[in-house]
């Protein structure tokens, strides 16, 4: 059982909080310091983004952090170097999140082996299609004990949700709406109907809601319908502030309430 499965198996009533941030932002060397600070502040698991020049699923905040990170010299090779220290400093589950092209250039097999070597538990690659994953990559992921996380949107059909559930091994990432990152969640009737519809499918995997979770209120709303929620842009925005280090504990504290 990897760390992700363990987390959800042991969670009890706890509302799971995950934070996304971009590796190499705001500075090249900030990656692990931020990870460590987040664990100390009580975050349940981490998504570390590896930057890409053309992040089509991202809004302005994460686009900007990716640009700065690339400018700072972040690459997958640099990131895996940094992550050699990961398990000396961080014990919560860690996922890597990014786009497929850097992974292809690094080599999918190499990538999975590097993940395992440094203690990464799962991967989210939004533009890696289910068909490709099944056909070519599932066995490499499994051989390295990596969970591959799929996304579900309000437009995803029930049949497809079932298929995703069958292929998933960690959790399912529910998008609050079909949107790029950084939009604010507005929990309308149709959103709650969609969350309930997904629940009613009877999934074997836990679900975590992301995109648009930015504060205590949206965190609580989301975790009424799912085991956990993910905060991305709102946290990355904080990293743009000069004194972000001091503010991390308070930011997490306020989110949880």
């Amino acid at each position: 059982m990897n760390r992700i499965n363990q987390l959800f198996a042991d969670k009890g009533d706890r509302r799971i909080l995950s934070i996304y941030f971009t590796a190499g932002y705001p500075t090249l060397e900030s990656t692990l310091d931020i990870a460590e600070a987040l664990e100390k502040a009580g975050v349940d698991f981490l998504e570390i983004g590896f930057p890409y020049s053309d992040p089509v699923a991202d809004g302005p905040v994460i686009q900007h952090s990716s640009e700065v990170a690339l400018h700072n010299g972040m690459t997958l090779h640099v990131l895996f170097e940094q992550l050699k220290e990961l398990r000396k400093r961080v014990s919560i589950p860690v996922l890597l999140m990014g786009y497929v092209n850097p992974v292809l250039q690094y080599g999918v097999e190499n990538f999975c082996e590097s993940c395992r070597a440094v203690g990464v538990d799962g991967v989210i690659v939004p533009d890696l299609p289910m068909y490709e994953f099944e056909e070519h990559y599932q066995s490499v992921f499994e051989a390295n004990g990596l969970s591959n996380i799929f996304l579900v949107t309000p437009q995803t059909s029930e049949e497809r949700i079932r298929k995703i559930d069958g292929l998933s091994t960690g959790f399912i990432y529910l998008l609050s709406s079909s949107a790029t990152t950084g939009k604010n969640l507005s929990v309308s009737e149709s959103t709650t109907a969609y969350f309930s519809r997904v629940r009613a499918v009877g999934l074997k995997n836990p679900t975590v809601i992301g995109f648009g979770i930015s504060d205590h209120e949206t965190f609580v709303r989301a975790t009424e319908y799912a085991e956990g929620a993910i905060v991305g842009s709102a946290f990355v925005r904080l990293l743009g502030e000069a004194d972000y280090r001091e503010k991390i504990p308070q930011f997490i504290h306020q989110l949880r309430g």
């Binding site: 299609p129 996304l151 579900v152 949107t153 437009q155 497809r160």
Partner: peptide
């Protein structure tokens, strides 16, 4: 070729 798209574009 193929269709390397995020789930949001799938439908």
């Amino acid at each position: 070729g193929g269709a390397y798209i995020p789930e949001m574009l799938y439908p």
